[in-house]
Write a protein that binds this DNA or RNA. Structure first.
Length: 349
DNA sequence: AAGACGTGGTA
DNA sequence: TTACCAAGTCT
């Protein structure tokens, strides 16, 4: 089966059945880049919510580069993988200071931007500059593993490289077809060649699909090894001052919720007590509420909130910022804290 | 190079 | 309820 058939089938299918009205389907590199970062490990429906907030607040790469990191993270709140937001901000500054505010058009140069790996760089190059570059995301891997019956361990570097080579061998010959081809790969994977119950009856590759011919669509691609989920107990100190402000701290740039704001958070209860003691608290002053669980990909967080009110003078400083409820929304908060504070009756003093 | 890194959707 | 994973990248 000639590989040229693959791209022709895909492009024809994309024109008739693909998605054409997503807000980031434009030629503007800044908008394409922004959407590609948001879409990493994130579904389209979720991004549709966040994308317009960013383009409204940051219409240009210059506007994004000039913003404080806290504002970028505040807009990113709830989207997850916050290194993407930190890198987005850094990359905007790279574009402004290193490329004169103009996005580079080659995949190689795009890959020098923070948070832009090979697949994202290729997507930007293809969509915004019509470059013949191959993407290889989850959708593409699934389509290729099925159509060409590639059976390998997804964690195997050699197998991964074979898929890259296959993806490159399938590119259409004409540059002008790159946007439709690239979008077609994503759309086919997302809407027809789905993980479970693929709609082979609607697939343009049905006649040439080797997995379908071999009755192996259910087992290809192979599953990734399950990640071990460790339980991590955390203790939150919800400390209010006499005015009703809540103490928030900016989290370290690396690690869980890096760069977001959170109430003082401790892995050991004793460390929370030691911290609270500086505000005149003893254990009896702390109101413990029911633990909440929050599941990340690799951690199960077991969070115990402890609330207290201090009458000690409170100033913004090394302990953090005292923030009144009407300003909580201005801060990028971890999802479980955001939800906790926005309950009808949060257990707070 | 295996693990870190969020949240939401689906079966 | 649990498992799996979604337009991945970084270290």
């Amino acid at each position: 089966m000639p590989h040229t058939d693959f791209s022709a089938r895909l492009i024809a299918w994309q024109h008739r059945h693909g998605r054409h009205h997503l807000p980031w389907q434009v030629r503007e590199p800044y908008l394409v880049w922004l959407s590609e970062i948001m879409l990493q490990q994130t579904q389209v429906a979720t991004v549709l919510d966040y994308y317009p907030r960013f383009t409204t607040r940051f219409p240009t790469v210059q506007a994004l580069a000039a913003a404080p990191q806290d504002e970028v993270l505040s807009l990113w709140q709830g989207l997850g993988y916050y290194s993407r937001a930190r890198n987005l901000h850094k990359a905007a500054q790279q574009v402004v200071s290193g490329f004169g505010g103009v996005f580079p058009s080659s995949r190689r140069e795009l890959e020098t931007l923070c948070g832009v790996g090979r697949s994202t760089a290729a997507a930007i190059a293809a969509f915004a500059f019509h470059q013949r570059e191959a993407i290889l995301d989850g959708n593409v891997k699934r389509v290729l593993c099925r159509v060409f019956a590639r059976d390998g361990n997804p964690a195997d570097k050699k197998f991964e490289n074979q898929l890259w080579a296959l993806a490159e061998s399938l590119l259409p010959s004409e540059q002008e077809n790159m946007p439709a081809y690239t979008q077609g790969l994503m759309d086919l994977g997302a809407t027809v060649c789905k993980r479970s119950k693929p709609l082979c009856g609607k697939c343009p590759m049905a006649e040439i699909c080797q997995a379908k011919a071999q009755n192996r669509t259910a087992v290809l691609p192979r599953k990734k090894a399950a990640v071990e989920v460790k339980t991590l107990p955390l203790y939150w100190l919800l400390l209010r001052n006499a005015e009703g402000a809540l103490l928030l701290q900016k989290r370290p740039q690396h690690g869980i919720w890096g760069g977001l704001y959170c109430v003082p958070c401790f892995e050991k209860l004793q460390d929370l007590y030691d911290f609270a003691a500086r505000y005149g608290m003893v254990a009896d002053n702390l109101a413990e509420s029911a633990a909440l669980t929050h599941r990340l990909t690799h951690r199960l967080l077991l969070i115990t909130p402890l609330a207290a009110k201090t009458h000690r003078p409170s100033e913004n400083g090394s302990d953090g910022l005292w923030v009144m409820p009407q300003h909580w929304a201005d801060y990028g908060l971890p999802k479980p804290l955001h939800d906790y504070l926005n309950q009808p009756q949060p257990a707070l003093f």
